[in-house]
């Protein structure tokens, strides 16, 4: 759960602007890590979005099939104790988790960028108050709060509101990093230049600072996807999310709930574990790969 702590050392921002990406050719970005990461994400992403169209039945409906069938040609990974096809449940789980992750990351990135940039750029008392709130949100352990909320709204919640709650409690880390970058940019000559040329605060933030921070934001975005999927799954595993919706966490919740370990249904438990690790490794490699690529482009690797 320390997913976002790798942003503690913000990437160094060089004084020279990013060289233009020649003619839309993005090959300069590619390094082995990024390649492997993107390949994993592409396969899992495209697969989990296209395959559900061919699903014979909605896997979240219980008792569609015979219970506890072993893996076979019809049921690739067998069926579980609820009469659901494990393979299709897993495919839907990856899709739902990814969707949630991307939506939450969108929300978090918008809030974090707005808060971080304004705090770093405006400074003064405003910055001190904002940073105090940010530090509190970072310090306060998230899981107990989520458990209370989960216990209160359980059953009456939609999958979407789980996402919104994660956004409310997930923006602080990113805001801190964005602000650190904005701070280092604030003193740069070209910012003063724009200032003296008559640009107002909004223009400076949008035109001068934003292009610098955007490279980092890609990395931050992917890290937040990881964080969101992980948080929802964590809540699911302890039964406090919308466990009827297939996600990478809810599948494990049901497996543990029906004692898959004791009944010897390895597949029910091992399949989501492997899928989760692969997905997380893909996201992580993409994020560090991007970071390395941007760093080497700036000449600081």
């Amino acid at each position: 759960m320390t997913i976002e702590t790798n942003v503690v050392a913000p990437p160094v921002v060089s004084a020279a602007p990013l060289p233009g990406k020649s003619g839309g050719n993005l090959l300069w970005l590619l390094n082995p890590r990024l390649g492997i990461g993107l390949a994993i994400l592409l396969i899992m992403g495209v697969g989990s979005f296209i395959l559900p169209m061919f699903a014979p039945v909605d896997p979240s409906i219980q008792a569609s099939y015979m219970r506890n069938l072993p893996p076979s040609g019809i049921h690739l990974l067998g069926t579980n104790s609820l009469g659901q096809d494990i393979f299709w449940f897993l495919v839907f789980a990856v899709r739902n988790s990814l969707t949630l992750g991307v939506l939450v990351a969108l929300g978090v990135t918008i809030i974090a960028t707005a808060v971080g940039l304004s705090a770093g750029y405006i400074g003064g008392g405003f910055e001190r108050v904002v940073m105090l709130v940010v530090d509190t949100f970072i310090t306060v352990p998230l899981l107990p709060i989520l458990i209370i909320l989960g216990a209160l709204i359980r059953g009456n919640t939609s999958f979407l509101s789980v996402g919104i709650i994660i956004v409310i409690f997930g923006w602080a880390w990113d805001a801190r990093t964005v602000r650190a970058m904005a701070l280092s940019l604030r003193e740069r000559e070209f910012i003063n230049m724009a200032r003296f040329s008559g640009a107002n605060t909004v223009q400076v933030i949008l035109r001068e600072i934003f292009p610098y921070v955007s490279a980092y934001m890609v990395v931050g975005f992917i890290n937040t996807v990881l964080f969101a999927i992980n948080t929802e799954a964590t809540l699911s595993v302890i039964g406090l999310s919308k466990v009827e919706v297939p996600t990478l966490g809810s599948i494990i919740f049901w497996a543990l709930n029906y004692n898959a370990l004791f009944t010897g249904q390895y597949v029910w438990l091992v399949a989501p574990i492997i899928a989760t690790i692969t997905l997380f490794l893909g996201l992580f490699l993409t994020s560090t790969g991007f970071n390395a690529a941007f760093a080497s482009k700036r000449g600081v690797s």
């Binding site: 997913i3 790798n6 494990i252 438990l269 989760t276 690790i277 997380f280």
Partner: peptide, 16 residues
């Protein structure tokens, strides 16, 4: 390899 694995996966895997 270790870092991106979430706690709950790690815990369940260790148990298994």
């Amino acid at each position: 390899l270790l870092y991106p694995i979430p706690y709950y996966i790690l815990a369940v895997s260790m148990l298994l």
